[in-house]
Computed example of a mutant assay.
Amino acid sequence: MAGLGEHITALVRSHAAGDDSVFYSVALQVAAREAKRGHHVLAEDIKQAVDNSRQITSRNNVTKLAQPRGDLAELVEVSHPQVQLRELIVSGELTTQIEQVIAEQRQRKNLLDHGFAPMYRLLLEGPPGTGKTMTASVLAHELALPMFTVRLDGLLSKYMGETGSKLRLVFDAVAERRGVYLFDEFDALGADRSGNDVGEARRILSSFLVFLEQASPESIIIAATNHRDILDRALFRRFDAVLTYDLPDARQAGAVIRARLGSLATGVSLAKLDQYTTGLSHADLVKAAEAAAKKALMRGDERVTRDDIVEALKARRSASVG
Rank of each mutant, 00 (worst) to 15 (best):
N226F: 13
N226R: 09
H227V: 11
R228L: 10
R228S: 13
R228M: 09
D229C: 07
D229A: 13
L231T: 08
D232F: 12
D232T: 12
D232M: 13
D232A: 11
R233P: 15
R233W: 11
R233M: 10
A234C: 13
A234S: 15
L235Y: 09
L235K: 08
L235F: 14
L235I: 15
R237V: 12
R237H: 14
R237C: 10
R237A: 10
R238L: 11
R238F: 12
F239E: 07
D240L: 08
D240Y: 10
V242K: 14
V242F: 10
L243N: 07
L243D: 08
L243K: 08
T244V: 15
T244A: 15
T244I: 14
Y245V: 13
D246I: 07
D246P: 05
D246N: 15
L247K: 14
L247D: 08
P248F: 05
D249L: 11
D249S: 11
D249N: 15
D249W: 09
D249V: 12
A250E: 14
A250N: 07
A250M: 08
R251I: 14
R251Q: 15
Q252N: 07
A253F: 02
G254F: 01
A255F: 07
A255P: 05
V256N: 01
I257A: 00
I257L: 13
R258L: 09
R258S: 13
R258T: 08
A259N: 12
R260D: 01
R260Y: 01
L261N: 03
L261K: 03
L261I: 05
L261D: 02
L264A: 09
A265D: 02
A265T: 05
A265W: 04
T266S: 12
T266Y: 09
G267L: 09
S269Q: 07
K272S: 11
K272C: 01
L273W: 05
L273R: 04
D274H: 09
Q275S: 13
Q275M: 07
Q275K: 11
Y276E: 00
Y276I: 00
T277L: 01
T277Q: 01
T278L: 10
G279F: 03
G279S: 09
G279N: 09
L280E: 02
L280H: 03
L280I: 04
S281G: 03
H282N: 15
H282V: 12
H282K: 08
A283D: 07
D284L: 02
L285I: 04
L285W: 07
V286N: 04
V286F: 03
V286D: 01
V286A: 08
V286P: 03
V286C: 06
K287G: 07
K287W: 03
K287V: 04
K287D: 12
K287I: 04
A288P: 02
A289R: 01
E290M: 06
A291H: 00
A292V: 00
A292W: 00
A292T: 00
A292H: 00
A293H: 01
K294S: 01
K295E: 15
A296K: 10
A296M: 11
A296F: 09
A296W: 11
L297Q: 14
L297H: 08
L297T: 14
